[in-house]
Design a binder for these strands. Structure first.
Length: 816
RNA sequence: GCGGAUGUGGUGAAAUGGCAGACACGCCAGACUUAGGAUCUGGUGCCUGACGGUGUGGAGGUUCAAGUCCUCUCAUCCGCACCA
């Protein structure tokens, strides 16, 4: 048969669509086992790229495999369609974000279809659809009512010219990306989700994710950053001053170094500084220094040299009563712990650098346990406590507990747990996002919109210029009535971070009616069995969706703790050793590849060139190779089935294995080995490249013989294996030859794996010398006899001191 | 700096501690061809004329046996980056 990729592919794509072949069975009394396969949904940027092709091909391969194995498969797609690029396009090309977004979706939907991806059409949605916003706004209101959503002031990048907030990536070397104006920090009220309430559970439940890559779990663990330590206060010597603050609270994970404190450092934003500025007790020089640091963004501070100023005020060490100087320093973070640290320069690198710069005292309180080794400062490891009164002589571990107990007994401190994880800021001062469904009323305060008024939809009549927030300028949208008292009120003009939409879209796909129902049979469909996406989402998206799942569980919407059972993080697609990008000019356009070779070739190459988790190097001639293989598959089908044959073959031919010759037996074995390997790959290793190699070996084996029944059987099995990988050609041939009867489960006959002769390697002292061929029933004595004979020339004049036989593999003779 | 991953032919890559390089790309030689960027046959880690030797970033170690396990080290990539 000739291979005409285009004809075959468009025929089957239409066939699948017309027959609703990819729609899951949504009857409520579902008895079939299910699989939920999900590739991360795309942002509709305009055109698909090779990363998408890889992502969706991997997902599709799982989905098709499970369908073939008889599962009820949910394999949906949608669009993460809110976000900044639409507004950028609006600014640049004067096109409305909605128009731009939905046109992109229409185009990309066709691109994905041309790859033969088996997505459910009926469950597709875009997160910018008002129906989706409606459900999301309901959750947001619920969270507000439960106190999990709250307002807090925080600092944002502000462009004074455009009167707009800028995202970090819009700030280029401290200047606005549009107008190049120097940005400033502006304090504004922002909305936060209390993800920190779930910090402990998010950390602990990582242990349940046994099918996640360990490095993703580790990244999340570090991001959550749990640490245990001592919280206590230093009394301030404030006799000469009237300050509202009488003491400074600090947090330390090293209570064992408590006797080594030589100064205290507070963050420049610490309340104590406000007090001192108000009390006017600081010199102009110190005051200016503090104000300079305060103006510096946290990002810049991180790269600067450590610096600070003394505040000319002392604190009292709670155990020794010593006076300790209080400083402010640029490296102390205001929003971690209590915004102040006890500095132990001898045993902390930051404190050490700082003390060196300002000549502050350094007191050694920890020594290396091996006393022969001189202690090089700063010594930050655990060790033996010295110079610490009654704690001297303890090791760090015991010392920490002892000091904590002492503070707790004296009721001047306590053991506490701290997290690096901060609450999730979800408000954005942008147009193209889900409106936050809250209303500000002068008498009632901030109140949620009535549920029956949802969704709060975006107004279409806006001008997007990049200056200010269009919603804030829209008078008829902005002004409304208070849902509580009916008085004049103002809508919240902030919209939600798009990470909110992507935190629960996987749950919405369970709905058989995505426009009207938030969730379908969640108990049946959840969790997602295979989630496929880029490693770049290892922290934020995956943490937020885990969080959101737990929140929705707590408000009784779903009944699971973790949303994604198996996570497969795909590698990047490279060309010439670098990530494909326009600026490098190394982009390969999926549409062109499909046009030239067809979708099956693109899919086969992408799965064959590397295992899915590794980087994939694009190689034009290897793509040709993939194409050649598919064409060979089409051409050689003539050996298995004649097109003149009107009767299709509806069951496997009955082959008498014992009557076959060597090559025929070999071909059969290779075919069924490929089948076995395919099942292994889908259930354990996910290395589709080796599965394809197995199929190629089987094809090579078939070509070494000419028995047409074996060809027929070979095609029956190989098309079955290949269907998830190269669906179009597989359906085309399966239909022609077998009326699709081969696309179900297959059982491999045992006889094909039985060998007449087995080959064993013979080694001497571990070095491979030759190989022998024996009957599979040969006993050890016989095997050794043959083996020794085969290596006689190496044994001459030597004595064998050990004989090792590894079943079906090799013989190793140790000689002297 | 901390953490993680990866290092195997000319290239992409295979290999439950058991014959390293399966499968492909490329290359070489040949066949069929007016022609070949089609197809088919054979070859292809490196050194050597051959016997043979050698070989999985480098150095050690464990083992009858190491790409695989352990220690140290180098390189590349990725993530986090003052979290007290």
């Amino acid at each position: 048969m000739d291979y005409k990729a285009k004809e075959i592919e468009s025929f089957w794509q239409k066939y699948w669509l017309d027959n609703r072949y990819f729609e899951p069975n949504s009857n409520e009394d579902i008895t079939k086992p299910k699989k939920y396969v999900l590739s991360m949904f795309p942002y509709p940027s305009g055109r698909i790229h090779m990363g998408h092709v890889r992502n969706y091909t991997i997902g599709d391969t799982f989905a098709r495999y499970y369908r073939r194995m008889g599962y009820n498969v949910l394999h949906p797609i949608g669009w993460d369609s809110f976000g900044m690029p639409a507004e950028n396009a609006a600014i640049k090309h004067a096109v409305h974000p909605k128009k731009w977004t939905y046109e992109n979706i229409a185009y990309m939907r066709n691109e994905l279809r041309s790859l033969g991806l088996s997505f459910s059409v009926e469950r597709e949605f875009a997160t910018s659809d008002p129906d989706y916003s409606k459900f999301e706004q309901e959750f947001i209101i619920e969270l507000w009512n439960r106190g999990l959503l709250y307002k807090k002031k925080s600092h944002l990048n502000w462009c004074p010219k455009d009167q707009t907030i800028l995202a970090n990536e819009q700030v280029i070397e401290g200047h606005c990306w549009r107008c190049d104006t120097e940005i400033t920090q502006k304090e504004m009220e922002q909305y936060y989700l209390k993800i920190t309430n779930y910090a402990d559970e998010l950390l602990a439940d990582l242990n349940k994710l046994d099918q996640w890559p360990s490095q993703v779990k580790l990244m999340q663990e570090n991001w959550i950053g749990k640490s245990r330590g001592l919280k206590f206060s230093f009394q301030l010597e404030t006799s000469s001053l009237s300050l509202s603050l009488k003491n400074i609270e600090v947090f330390t994970t090293r209570p064992d170094t408590i006797y080594g404190v030589s100064y205290i450092a507070v963050a420049p934003e610490h309340k104590l500084i406000d007090d001192l500025l108000n009390a006017d007790s600081l010199s102009d020089e110190v005051r200016n220094e503090i104000l300079t640091i305060r103006k510096t963004s946290p990002r810049d501070r991180a790269t600067q040299e450590k610096s600070g100023v003394p505040l000319n005020i002392n604190a009292i060490h709670p155990l020794t009563g010593e006076k300790i100087a209080v400083w402010t320093a640029n490296f102390v973070l205001v929003d971690y712990g209590s915004g102040a640290v006890m500095a132990v320069p001898a045993h902390d690198e930051r404190d050490f650098d700082f003390s060196k710069k300002y000549n502050l005292p350094v007191k050694i309180v920890i020594k290396n346990k091996n006393s022969n080794i001189e202690t090089v400062l700063p010594f930050t490891d655990d060790g033996l406590i010295v110079n610490s009164d009654k704690f001297s002589g303890l090791d760090s571990n015991n010392g920490r507990e002892a000091v904590i107990r002492e503070f707790e007994n004296l009721k001047i401190g306590e053991a506490v747990i701290n997290f690096k994880l901060r609450d999730w800021g979800i408000s954005r001062q942008r147009y193209w996002g889900t409106p936050i469904p809250l209303i500000h009323c002068k008498t009632c305060g901030t109140v949620p919109e009535k549920i029956e008024n949802l969704p709060v939809s975006l107004p279409d009549d806006v001008q997007i210029t990049g200056e200010g927030n269009p919603l804030d300028h829209h008078q008829t949208w902005k002004h409304c009535k208070c849902p509580v008292c009916g008085g004049d009120a103002i809508r919240e003009t902030d919209t939600l971070d798009t990470f909110v939409e992507s935190s629960w879209y996987h749950l919405h796909y369970t709905s058989p009616d995505v426009k009207n129902i938030a969730f379908g049979n969640t108990d049946y469909w959840l969790p997602v069995d295979h989630y496929i996406g880029g490693i770049e989402h290892a922290i934020l998206h995956l943490l937020y969706s885990r969080f959101f799942t737990k929140v929705l569980r707590d408000i009784k919407k779903v009944n699971i703790d973790e949303p994604f059972k198996h996570l497969l993080t795909q590698g990047m697609v490279l060309k010439d050793g670098a990530k494909m990008s326009k600026s490098k000019g190394n982009v390969v356009d999926p549409d062109e590849i499909i046009e030239k070779y067809g979708a099956d070739t693109a899919r086969l190459f992408i799965l064959f060139a590397a295992p899915p988790t590794k980087e994939l190097e694009w190689n034009d001639s290897a793509v040709e190779g993939a194409y050649r293989f598919i064409r060979r598959l089409a051409l050689k089908s003539d050996f298995a089935f004649s097109e003149n044959n009107i009767n299709k073959i509806l069951e496997l031919p009955n082959i008498d294995h014992s009557k076959l010759n060597k090559n025929e037996k070999f071909a059969r074995r290779k075919v069924y080995e490929a089948y076995k390997r395919a099942n292994d790959v889908f259930s354990k290793t996910y290395t589709f490249n080796t599965l394809i190699a197995g199929v190629m070996e089987a094809m090579n084996g078939l070509e070494e013989q000419s028995n047409s029944e074996i060809w027929t059987e070979g095609y029956w099995v190989l098309l079955n294996i290949l269907e998830p990988i190269v669906p179009h050609i597989s359906w085309e041939l399966s239909k022609k030859m077998f009326n699709l009867a081969n696309l179900g489960e297959i059982s491999a006959p045992d006889e094909v794996f039985q060998l007449d002769q087995i080959t064993l390697g013979v080694s001497i002292n571990g070095k491979n010398r030759t190989e022998i061929s024996v009957s599979p029933d040969a006993d050890e004595v016989e095997i050794l006899q043959v083996a020794k004979k085969s290596v006689a020339k190496w044994l001459e004049g030597k004595t064998i001191i050990k004989e090792i036989i590894v079943q079906k593999k090799l013989i190793n003779l140790v000689i002297k």
